[in-house]
């Protein structure tokens, strides 16, 4: 009976179930699949890779399939396998938590190119590339500017959990702030969650109460922190995407990922018959990381100058922005 009920109800719902009917026609276009943990328009990590492929689509025909919102790691693994099986040329596993699965799946599909990130590990496989963002570099530059513009001598960082890309960015930011002003109070608050927006907002308020007048933060829950900073007109530095739209009054600048820089290389390699095995990094020097300023924000010229100097220093190698880079 249970089974019958479930079937009947499922069938009933199927009547109102919908599926966009137009499947993309497959021609000679390059077939690329993206598997990503959050929404494709999240103004952050996932959107950055989608925008990267879309930038390439302007001058090349690409058939793109996106499986976004895949936070369940095993579901992502199933998607990676399925896309490979369906003959996609390039499968992008856009989440560092997917790597362990990819390592086991990729050997089964030697003719498919895989790329994943952010990471620096190709598992020694010929058809897997890894990509990462030197987010410490942008973090450093913005840390320098934050310390230069702070009047109270305090900057605050709202982080999720001290891991991966978030840790890289935060460490770079703190290092930059201290390099600019050794006496700066650079406080970091890892709230313990990638998704608790309310807690992120309160973390920003805690920073402001403790005397921070410039803030930054990383991961998708920082929208709450941006809102809290906006209410008090406290300056904000963004990362992973241009966050100006979220608070035009306070966003000074954002570190933006231009994945197309390395995606072009990966695709060019594929054209040349190289399926993978390479490590890629976007950084300031290769313009894969850019600092986008908010023109509406009246930034002190001296502050911007300090930032530019730091940027130049990182590009020519005279400044080390991170612990391991």
């Amino acid at each position: 009976m249970k089974k019958l009920n479930l079937c009947l109800s499922a069938a009933l719902l199927a009547i109102i179930l919908i599926a966009p009917s137009s499947l993309l026609a497959s021609g000679k276009a390059l077939r690329v699949a993206i598997i990503a943990p959050s929404a494709k328009n999240d103004l952050a990590f996932t959107q950055s890779i989608v925008d990267g492929i879309k930038a390439i689509q302007k001058d090349r025909e690409i058939e793109l399939a996106i499986t976004d919102g895949t936070f369940v790691v095993e579901d992502a693994a199933a998607a990676i396998r399925d896309y490979a099986k369906k003959g996609y040329d390039l499968v992008l596993a856009h989440g560092s938590q997917y790597g362990g699965s990819l390592k086991e799946i990729a050997p089964d599909f030697p003719n498919t190119s895989f790329a994943w990130g952010t990471s620096a590990d190709t598992f020694g496989l010929a058809n897997v590339s890894s990509y990462e963002a030197a987010s410490d570099e942008g973090g450093y530059v913005m840390g320098v500017m934050a310390a230069a513009m702070s009047k109270k001598g305090g900057v605050g960082v709202v982080g999720p959990i001290e891991v991966g890309d978030a840790k890289l960015y935060v460490d770079g930011f703190v290092k930059g702030a201290k390099a600019q002003n050794a006496k700066i109070r650079a406080k970091v608050n890892y709230i313990g969650s990638f998704s608790d927006v309310a807690l992120a907002a309160e973390a920003a308020r805690a920073h402001m109460a403790a005397g921070a007048d410039v803030l930054t933060g990383t991961a998708q829950m920082v929208v709450g922190a941006i809102g809290a900073a906006r209410a008090k007109r406290v300056a904000w530095f963004g990362t992973q995407a241009n966050q100006t739209e979220l608070a035009p009054e306070i966003v000074v600048a954002s570190q933006v990922y231009k994945w197309e820089v390395i995606l072009r290389k990966i695709i060019a390699d594929m054209d040349a018959g190289i399926k993978g095995g390479k490590k890629y990094e976007i950084n300031l020097a290769n313009n894969g990381i850019v600092i986008e300023f908010n023109d509406a924000y009246k930034l002190d010229a001296a502050v911007k100058e300090a930032g530019m100097k730091a940027m130049a220093g990182i590009k020519d190698g005279s400044i080390q922005s991170g612990a391991s880079h």
Binding site: N189, Y190, I191, G192, L199, E202, A203, A206, H207
Partner: peptide, 23 residues
């Protein structure tokens, strides 16, 4: 308790290695 933990993290009273435990 949430706000006290946040404040303690902000002031570094809780070492970062134990930040999950504090949460």
């Amino acid at each position: 308790v949430q706000s006290i933990v946040l404040q303690c993290k902000t002031f570094g009273v809780i070492p970062r290695s134990a930040s999950d435990l504090a949460s």
